[in-house]
Structures are given as structure tokens and as C-alpha cells.
Nucleic acid binder design. Structure first.
Length: 368
RNA sequence: GGGACCGUAGCGCAGUUGGUUAGCGCGUCUCCCUGUCACGGAGAAGGUCGCGGGUUCGAGUCCCGUCGGUCCCG
């Protein structure tokens, strides 16, 4: 037993750990697929909920799936949409309602109101249309302040739905004539909040059903904003070591290092791209050649909206080899942000993502 | 030489018939963002209202003077 260093999906090999930015609506905001490659990104996470409402499954089917749609030949993981649906509905019931059978949600955009029926089966079907490499089971994501009783129900529902997802997954494989060589992986999410016995129960049941990979579900941060170290570590320990462990929604570069130490293989997070658009840049704490990634703080934040950068002709980070740092100055980026030019978010995102992939490279090097 | 308008926070401006600790936008400075309804959110600092008189219980607001600026007519 040990850390899973690689996996093969549909004939392609992927190295672990891996960080995947969120391309929720089939685009990592402000970036195109070439930009992602510039940042050495190897895969993305798209979102079933968002893509089934826009552009919708008929169009995705016509264009031949997400990879062709966004001209991306890297790894594609599709999130089930559970996180969105539940966080919206728990936040305000006007967004929809939840029953054991299905989730009904109302989406209004540009004055148009539409009603969707979302089931575990439907989520899987749509994910096959998306053509993703890793399909995630629809799960029940309890709200941050949920009491134990509510969390227990969410675990129960998550298990039930995972079962239904697996059945639908098998049907899809059969009707699409997919075998173990060209089929996607099916990942189940372990819920249970901070109640470790519920996490344990959830993991055991899901393992019993049998999945290709497992994910940590829920919010990786507690209400005080602290990384849920204890829970994350415990949940990683519940997962089989020979299958990919996905820490959903994690995290800062430092969180990813911590997650890696716990045994997680896959990470996705909106932070680097959202931060970039909000002028918060991640920079390596020191020269990666001398950085002890496992034992030293790996990064610092740099806010580009500072007057002091007006005349700063240096790169964002002297240790960074990204497209932005090789070609543009802090002064230029500061200027672009000041005039609210979209290119600012793009160049900043390219940099932040490269910081993430650089840390990933350092983590991989520790496995060799 | 005559006339009009304007001087209020670093910048651009509001300030109603004079009424408690003078507002707004931008900027500045903090802080926040973790399976993206997120090209955003929260907060703070900063002004003896050009200057000097006067009227009034009370003046950024009214009156006189003065300095500075913009424009128009000679």
C-alpha cells in the first residue's frame, strides 16, 4: 500500500497528484484551452448542472461532447451538479426542492424561468453526453450548519443515490458498448460532515457498492474558515489506496500540499482562477529548486491592486516560468486591472494556475 | 476695462427656502473568496467647505471685500 502515482483512463495515462481547475461551464473563466496548456494544466472539471441548462444536452450531443466543444484533449472530470443544486436550495428554498426520488430546481436566467427535474440517473446520463473521463455520482451535500440528524439523512440519501448512479452507469456502458478499456471511471462522494462515524458508515457502504474512485464531499473549510484537517485526513484513510482519492474543492496551494500528505490524488478548486480575477496572485514562497515542498510554507498571496506596483517593472514572481511572468510586468498587470481589462484576469489566471502546477510538479518529485 | 460662472477629501462632483457629528463616485489602505449564480464582497482612513470680515441664536449655503481659475464681450 502506498500513494497511487498514476492511473490510466480510456487509454490515457495520468500522473498523480493532479490539480484540475474548474471549467464549470466548459471554460475556465477568461482562459481558453491553449492558455490552460501554457500553464501545464492537464485536466479540468466541468459541471453537469450548469451545462445541462446551458448550452443543454441536445447541443452537447450534436457537438460531440465537452472535449470537442472546448477543444480540449486533456482529462475531463464532470461534477454531478449536487454541490450547486444543494448549496442553492439549502440557501434559499425558492431555488427548488429535494426529495429522495429527485431534485426539482428552478432556474431563471434573463427573465426566463425554467424547471428542471434532476435525478441520479439523469445526472449520469448527462455526464455520458458530456463525454467525461471521470463521472461523479449525484450526492446530497448538507449545508454547513447541518445538525447530526440532517447529516445522517444526507449520508443515507448519498448512498441510495450512489447505488442508482451505478446502475444507470452500467446501463449506459452497455448501451454505448463501452468496455473496461474505453469507459470512464465512476466516482462516489463520501459525505458525513464532521461526524466521523457518519463518514465511516458512508465510506463503507459506498465501497461495498463498488466504485472506481472516491471523493471527499462537503465543504473543505469550516465556518471559521479553517481547513478541516481532521475530517479530510480521516476520510482519506477510509478510501482504498489503490483507487484515486479526490479532495473536491481543495484548495489553496498549501491545502493541496496538506491533502497530498493525507493521500489525496486529485484536487479541484476555483480559487486560483477566481483569485486571479480578484487581483490576488499566488507566488511561490521561494525558489522551487530549493523549496522543501513538504515541510516549508509553499506560497504567499500578492495583491496586484496596490499603488506600489504602478512602476514595478519586475515579473509577478521571480521564481515563475509562466507565460505571464516571462512576458509582462507587475506594472502592466496593475494597469490592466485598473482599466478593468479582461486580459488582466486572463494573464493573472495563467500565472496562478502555473503556480499550482509547479507545486504539483514538486509534489510528484517527492514520489520518485 | 466690463460681465458671467466656479473654488467643498488625492481627483471629479452633490449639498434642497441658512438648522444636530458636511455627503457621493473614483482613488488610497485593510480584510474576505476553497466540487464558480461569483469580471466580485466587507470595512477603514481622509475635509478648520479658497482666504478675511459681516448679518444671524446658528453660515458650505446670505452680504461685502480679497485671492485664484474658466469662459464671454471690448
Amino acid at each position: 500500500m502506498g500513494y497511487l502515482k498514476t492511473t490510466t483512463i480510456r487509454g490515457n495515462d495520468y500522473n498523480f497528484p493532479i490539480y484540475l481547475p474548474d471549467a464549470t461551464r466548459a471554460v475556465a473563466r477568461s482562459l481558453d484551452s491553449e492558455d490552460l496548456k501554457k500553464s501545464k494544466i492537464e485536466g479540468v472539471v466541468v459541471n453537469t448542472y450548469h451545462l445541462m441548462s446551458e448550452p443543454g444536452t441536445p447541443i452537447l450531443e450534436t457537438v460531440g461532447g465537452v472535449k470537442k466543444f472546448m477543444n480540449w484533449d486533456g482529462l475531463v472530470v464532470s461534477d454531478s451538479g449536487g454541490f450547486q443544486v444543494f448549496s442553492l436550495i439549502y440557501q434559499d428554498p425558492k431555488f427548488g426542492k429535494i426529495s429522495d426520488a429527485e431534485v426539482t430546481f428552478y432556474k431563471s436566467s434573463k427573465g426566463e424561468k425554467r424547471k428542471y427535474h434532476f435525478t441520479p440517473e439523469r445526472s449520469i446520463q448527462v455526464q455520458f453526453v458530456l463525454g467525461s473521463d471521470i463521472i461523479i455520482c449525484l450526492d446530497d451535500v448538507p449545508s454547513v450548519n447541518a445538525k447530526e440528524d440532517q447529516v445522517r439523512l444526507s449520508v443515507k440519501r448519498t448512498i441510495e443515490w450512489a447505488k442508482r448512479c451505478k446502475e444507470e452507469f452500467a446501463k449506459q456502458l452497455q448501451s454505448r458498448k463501452m468496455d473496461h478499456k474505453n469507459r470512464p471511471l465512476l466516482l462516489a462522494v463520501i459525505q458525513g460532515g464532521d461526524f466521523l462515524h457518519l463518514r465511516e458508515e458512508c465510506a463503507q457502504e459506498l465501497i461495498k457498492i463498488g466504485f472506481d474512485a472516491f471523493g471527499y464531499g462537503g465543504f473543505p473549510m469550516d465556518e471559521q474558515g479553517n481547513f478541516r484537517t481532521e475530517t479530510l485526513k480521516f476520510v482519506a484513510g477510509l478510501m482504498p489506496d489503490d483507487k484515486p482519492k479526490f479532495a473536491l474543492g481543495v484548495g489553496t496551494p498549501q491545502d493541496i500540499v496538506e491533502g497530498f500528505k493525507m493521500g489525496y490524488n486529485i484536487f479541484d478548486c476555483v480559487l486560483p482562477t477566481r483569485d486571479a480575477r480578484h487581483q490576488r496572485l499566488s507566488v511561490l514562497s521561494k525558489d522551487p529548486k530549493t523549496l522543501d515542498v513538504l515541510h516549508e510554507p509553499v506560497f504567499n498571496y500578492l495583491n496586484m491592486n496596490r499603488e506600489k506596483f504602478v512602476k514595478d517593472s519586475g515579473p509577478i514572481s521571480e521564481y515563475c516560468d509562466c507565460f505571464t511572468c516571462q512576458n509582462y510586468s507587475r506594472a502592466y498587470l496593475h494597469h490592466l486591472f485598473k482599466i478593468e481589462e479582461f486580459t488582466a484576469g486572463r494573464l493573472a489566471s495563467i500565472h496562478n494556475l502555473r503556480t499550482y502546477t509547479k507545486i504539483i510538479e514538486l509534489l510528484r518529485a517527492t514520489l520518485a
